[in-house]
Simulated scan of single mutants.
Amino acid sequence: MNEVKTLGLFLVTALAEIVGCYLPYLWLREGKSIWLPVPAAFSLAAFAWLLSLHPTAAGRVYAAYGGVYIAVAIFWLWWVDGIRPSNWDLLGSAVALTGMAIIMFAPRS
């Protein structure tokens, strides 16, 4: 799988996980509809399915995915929560994405 497809799949996967966790948060912390866990469950099921689409070892995928999740969560902080990330947030995201790239795209024998 080429790098662009891998990154795209990771991005969609991260969004599915964040939405799946954010909807119950809205219900439990913000007093929103009790029905929000229903679409959250579908989103989390999609998250698990999306992780299974990578053609490499599960442990490697999970480790690398964590780096993308961190970056997407920081973007979510800005876009959804309305909180501008600090320079440290951005640096941490860059480090996490670098780790993801090393794990996923390093030459293998």
Rank of each mutant, 00 (worst) to 15 (best):
N87K: 03
Y65M: 04
P55Y: 03
G59M: 03
A73P: 00
I70K: 01
L53D: 06
A101Q: 07
Y62G: 03
R84L: 15
L50Q: 05
S43R: 03
L44P: 01
L77K: 05
A58R: 04
H54A: 12
Y62D: 11
A45S: 14
L97I: 12
F42A: 15
G59H: 01
P55A: 14
M100E: 05
S86T: 15
A94D: 12
A96C: 10
Y69I: 11
G59L: 04
A71R: 02
R84M: 15
I83H: 01
A46F: 13
A58K: 06
G66P: 00
Y62N: 09
Y62M: 11
N87D: 12
G67H: 04
G82W: 08
G82S: 09
L77Y: 04
G92E: 11
A71N: 10
V68S: 04
W49P: 01
A41S: 15
A73R: 01
T56E: 15
W79E: 15
Y65D: 08
A58I: 13
W76S: 08
Y62C: 08
A94I: 14
A71Y: 02
I83L: 09
A64V: 11
L77I: 12
F47W: 12
G67R: 02
N87G: 11
G66I: 13
L77F: 04
G99V: 07
L77Q: 12
H54E: 06
S86G: 11
H54D: 09
F42M: 15
W88Q: 12
L50Y: 03
V72Q: 07
V72T: 11
G59K: 01
Y62I: 11
A46E: 08
F42T: 10
S43T: 12
A41G: 14
W78C: 07
A46R: 01
R60K: 10
A73D: 14
A40P: 00
L51W: 02
V95K: 02
R84S: 14
L51R: 06
G99H: 07
L91D: 13
A48K: 01
V68H: 02
I83C: 01
